[in-house]
Amino acid sequence: LAQKYLKDPHVNVFVKEYHSQRISVIGAVEKPNVYSVPGHKTILDLLVLAGGLKEEAGSLLFLIRPASAEKGPSRREEGSNGQEPRTFVIDLEELLVKGEMRLNLPLQNGDVVNVPVAGKIFVGGEVRNPGGFPLKGRRMTVSQAITLAGGIKTEAKGSETRIFRHSEKGTGKEILTVNIYDIEKGQGEDLSLKENDIIIVPKS
């Protein structure tokens, strides 16, 4: 009877095809799309498929996982009661610049990878290069914004520079006055800016 059975058999198993997963990549990426990908993929894999980040990409990535998906690792989750989609918040600077690979989460079928556009501040008036400049999640001060705008012109009245800001109470706009010259001398407060602040440097 023993002759009918193989002794110490060696078996090789080959995976012919992985089941594909449909993962959406949206927001500030070069090629937003719904990607059908085989096998196990991570956030970085999908960012590469989507052509990388656009210049205006913000500093955070949101991984939105449907409630029906399998339970995965936790990273600053929101709405994780099992009834609603779960959201994982990923700091892109930590992942891409500092190489924190623990943030490179594995993806599941139905996941949505969203990279929102960074908030902006706007600089106008008597500056050399007026325009909008992305905050990208970092702290930006008045002097830094003026530098990004190429500095003030010789005919500018920097002592009466205005910052127009949406009121947090929803009651209209706040208007703040700063003195660029005092800030440059280290004698004035270099205020931190908020998203959608508008800096106007008047003409003397």
Score class of each variant (00 low, 15 high):
residue 37 V to D: 01
residue 34 V to P: 00
residue 32 P to D: 10
residue 23 I to N: 00
residue 43 I to M: 06
residue 29 V to N: 04
residue 59 S to H: 12
residue 47 L to T: 04
residue 71 K to L: 12
residue 70 E to D: 09
residue 38 P to F: 09
residue 41 K to F: 01
residue 54 K to V: 04
residue 39 G to Y: 11
residue 41 K to S: 12
residue 41 K to H: 13
residue 35 Y to F: 14
residue 59 S to I: 03
residue 52 G to P: 07
residue 48 V to S: 12
residue 71 K to G: 13
residue 66 P to G: 05
residue 25 V to Y: 00
residue 37 V to Q: 02
residue 31 K to Q: 14
residue 22 R to Q: 06
residue 49 L to P: 06
residue 25 V to G: 03
residue 42 T to N: 05
residue 21 Q to S: 06
residue 26 I to L: 15
residue 53 L to Y: 02
residue 36 S to L: 02
residue 69 A to Y: 05
residue 44 L to I: 13
residue 38 P to T: 07
residue 63 L to I: 10
residue 49 L to H: 06
residue 44 L to Q: 11
residue 33 N to E: 14
residue 55 E to Y: 10
residue 29 V to H: 05
residue 32 P to S: 13
residue 47 L to H: 02
residue 18 Y to G: 02
residue 24 S to R: 04
residue 20 S to R: 09
residue 30 E to C: 06
residue 55 E to M: 00
residue 64 I to P: 11
residue 50 A to T: 04
residue 66 P to C: 05
residue 53 L to T: 02
residue 43 I to T: 04
residue 49 L to G: 04
residue 22 R to G: 00
residue 25 V to W: 00
residue 68 S to R: 12
residue 49 L to Q: 13
residue 45 D to S: 11
residue 30 E to D: 11
residue 33 N to R: 13
residue 46 L to I: 10
residue 70 E to G: 09
residue 20 S to F: 09
residue 50 A to Q: 10
residue 23 I to Y: 01
residue 20 S to T: 09
residue 68 S to T: 06
residue 26 I to V: 15
residue 20 S to V: 05
residue 28 A to V: 08
residue 61 L to A: 15
residue 60 L to Q: 15
residue 49 L to S: 15
